[in-house]
């Protein structure tokens, strides 16, 4: 018992958890309205989507790669969903399923090209980012879908738990547990981790690494589509610019959450709960900075600094963990 404690204390999740509590206390004391019902509800709506974005990036980082096209992919899928619901008039559930299929398909393209060319996924997804976003703009003529079914948009503005929380957060938490189960207890999930951790060894033990990497990209596409659908439901319309130009606005939360959560960029390690805590921390800090009235324009600056500090802390933690291993 005594020996286990320090190990637990140096885990990333524990540190993150403390940080989250610290910031919650800090902002509740020093800002007006942080713990108000309205703010917590708004926070839960944003956190829900950031968690999904973080998870979508996490599953690609698992392969040692990354997915720059995340935002473009998500928005393209959501616009497709909006078109199905509004113009074609398909019922909500099948339309959502088709949207997810679209996300998976776009993810598959990323994975297929990456694996077949052997080029780093950075350059492949840089190219597909521009292709997806361009195609989407071309097809939609940059017009939004604003007459979505009310059941779908109402879900995003619904308030539960004494009006403190958005049901969107429950959806995200559901996916967190689903992914946790998937990576921990299913055969396929473990194979994905094995392929990411040591591709050569995995290949030798009979796992088709290329296939696994393609699965990771498909999963990333699916999760990005879920995130985009949730965003659509929250805004109440499918808007081409909802993730910024080329979907670039998603990129920082996408990397911040897994990196803060302790996902190794070299691949082979996933931390589902860490990513969730990372996303919570980022949203918390962003929200707090707004409430402190630091000026909207400086928020990006601080988020950049936080990312930098996060990776530096991670490096330091690794260093001390190694040192204490050597000593014991």
């Amino acid at each position: 018992m005594f020996k286990r404690l320090p190990n637990f204390a140096v885990t990333n999740q524990f540190g993150l958890f403390l940080l989250v509590i610290f910031f919650v206390l800090f902002f509740s004391f020093f800002t007006d309205g942080f713990s108000s019902r309205f703010n917590l509800f708004a926070l839960s709506r944003v956190v829900a989507i950031d968690i999904m974005i973080g998870l979508a990036m996490m599953v690609v980082i698992l392969t040692g790669g990354l997915n720059l096209s995340l935002g473009a992919l998500g928005v393209s899928a959501a616009m497709f969903g909006g078109w199905l619901m509004e113009t074609v008039g398909i019922p909500i559930i099948p339309a959502m399923l088709l949207t997810l299929a679209m996300g998976g398909f776009l993810g598959w393209i990323n994975g297929y090209v990456t694996v077949k060319t052997g080029v780093h996924s950075f350059i492949v997804t840089l190219a597909t980012m521009s292709i997806y976003f361009g195609m989407m703009t071309l097809f939609t003529e940059a017009e939004a879908f604003r007459k979505l079914p009310e059941t779908f948009t109402d879900f995003g503005s619904l308030k539960i738990f004494n009006k403190y929380v958005s049901p969107l957060l429950l959806v995200s938490i559901f996916f967190v547990f689903l992914l946790f189960y998937f990576f921990k207890f299913t055969d396929l999930g473990r194979k994905l981790i094995a392929a990411g951790a040591n591709p050569d060894a995995a290949e030798l033990s009979g796992i088709s690494v290329g296939q696994m990497f393609i699965y990771c990209h498909i999963l990333s596409g699916l999760l990005a589509a879920v995130a985009a659908l949730m965003l659509t439901s929250r805004i109440g319309a499918a808007i081409p610019s909802m993730a910024g130009n080329l979907g670039f606005d998603w990129l920082l939360p996408a990397f911040l959450a897994p990196v803060l959560g302790g996902t190794l960029l070299s691949g082979g390690k996933v931390t589902v709960f860490g990513t969730m805590l990372g996303a919570i921390l980022v949203t918390l800090i962003t929200n707090g900075l707004y409430l402190i009235e630091i000026g909207e324009f400086w928020i990006r600056f601080f988020l950049g600094i936080i990312l930098l500090l996060a990776v530096l802390l991670d490096k330091a933690r690794e260093f001390f963990a190694q040192k204490s291993n050597v000593l014991s």
Binding site: F255, R300, L307, L308
Partner: peptide, 24 residues
């Protein structure tokens, strides 16, 4: 730091851009 240039420059991208927007 030995951290990948991708992450470092992603962070500095936001820092420089944030300074740009903060100033202007």
């Amino acid at each position: 730091t030995g951290i990948s240039a991708f992450i470092i420059t992603l962070a500095t991208l936001y820092i420089f851009k944030g300074m740009n927007l903060g100033i202007t």
